[in-house]
Design a protein around this nucleic acid. Structure first.
Lengths: 240, 240
DNA sequence: CTTGCAGGATTGTTGAACAATTCCTAGAAT
DNA sequence: ATTCTAGGAATTGTTCAACAATCCTGCAAG
């Protein structure tokens, strides 16, 4: 291991520790309430268009209205809820234009990250790819077990980890929001298997290109991947 | 005017009306308080590192603590404040890594928007460039009057309008946050003239390339522009 | 079919209260 | 002189109850 890799590993470790500390610190009631709501939304329990009543949720979540409203704000920022003044909060209903918008941003960010790896100084340590490998294998395992929602989750994590290679806190945050919104879309699509299955091999191919440090090929591959994925989602969306 | 342009103009008009409606609707106290605080921060009245006391601001802004905290949340989401649990809200102190991060994202987004104009279908109507022209001229006028903060504001608006050409609500929102954070940086730099003066001619040159529909040249120009700007800011930052 | 108008429900905002945590300071121990 | 500790002051986190402002519903009138 070169000294450059050692320094890079150390930096990666510092990032994970900081994330853990932040997670422990946030015993805030608002964030806990937001966690529960986030799960309900991304898992589809609260379908797009649903309104979230304040009085109802204060009883279920056992927090005050003020705290609940703070949780609403958090999720609004993530794109998982929208506020309508004097009317309440709703789960957003995304349309085809949103699909196009989300995929445009995904392409811009993810392709740039991969392309940027070529010029990276020092070179990306091999250990940084481990989370991606884990995600690829998790998706493959879940597919064998017919657990398609888990395949979707692993796919999301793969792309989040991919962006993480750029060491950009702001890109990480943006990607988190983008992927959360994408999950909103997935729930209006009927066939989870047809939707998620193609990603498995795609992600492995991309991972192997990254492992071989063929970054330009990987970027081109990823761009095509995302273009085709967008078309597939749009088609499934129209056929709903 | 082709029918394509007419449809495009109509869409642009719908967007401005929607923006006006949204602006009128937001009579919410929290957002008004956030507006005032936002100005104070971006104009430098509240320097990086400053703590915002709740009791103090409830008296000044004449809102309740709960409403003030909602305003804090709004600004936190824009990157203009950071929350430290049980310690309060502070104006962030950005460092050199943040400069690099912010400029990387600016380059990715802005260059992609300009490059994307080449493939746009239908072609960009000339009227869409008018806001950019206004910003260029506003910057030139402010420079003649020695009003350098106004030059900086016009420059910000130029880049926001540039991103607006992509018709992507999410890019608009991201850019808003990025530029707000950038303003945070400008206030720790001593010389406003040396900082903002180079942008004036740069923006005009870029605008004219766009007007001539030489999008690839414009994209290359913009990329170089942002790279040099980053270097300049980093230098000024180290010399503070 | 549209328009106008109650009144009932929901959200927006406030102020006070208490709990939890951090900050500050004075004094004790070394 | 420095470090450590205890405890009180100050600040933030959260709840609650109340009221104001706004929106939605249904119905009556044109």
């Amino acid at each position: 291991m070169t000294t450059g890799e050692a320094a890079d590993n150390r930096q990666a470790w510092l990032r994970t520790v900081a994330a853990d500390v932040a997670r422990l610190d946030r015993s805030s009631s608002a964030e806990r309430a937001a966690d529960i709501l986030r799960r309900s939304i991304t898992e589809g329990a609260l379908p797009p268009g649903a309104q979230l009543s304040e009085v109802e949720l204060t009883e279920v979540l056992e927090v005050s209205r003020n705290t609940l409203r703070e949780a609403f704000r958090l999720l609004t920022h993530e794109g998982l809820l929208i506020y309508k003044l004097h009317r309440g909060v709703f789960v957003p209903e995304l349309d085809e234009a949103d699909v196009v918008d989300l995929y445009r941003l995904r392409r811009v960010l993810e392709v740039d990250v991969v392309r940027g790896l070529a010029d990276r100084e020092p070179e990306l340590p091999a250990a940084r790819l481990e989370p991606l490998q884990d995600d690829v294998e998790a998706a493959e395992a879940a597919a064998l077990a017919d657990r398609w929602p888990a395949v979707g989750t692993a796919n999301m994590r793969f792309h989040q980890h991919l962006i993480g290679l750029a060491d950009s806190a702001r890109m990480d945050a943006m990607t988190g929001r983008l992927l959360a919104e994408l999950r909103l879309l997935f729930h209006v699509i009927a066939a989870p298997r047809e939707l998620h299955e193609p990603y498995i091999a795609r992600n492995r191919a991309l991972f192997e290109l990254l492992e071989a440090r063929r970054y330009d090929e990987a970027a081109a591959n990823l761009n095509q991947y995302l273009l085709e994925s967008e078309v597939a989602i749009l088609a499934a969306f129209r056929a709903r």
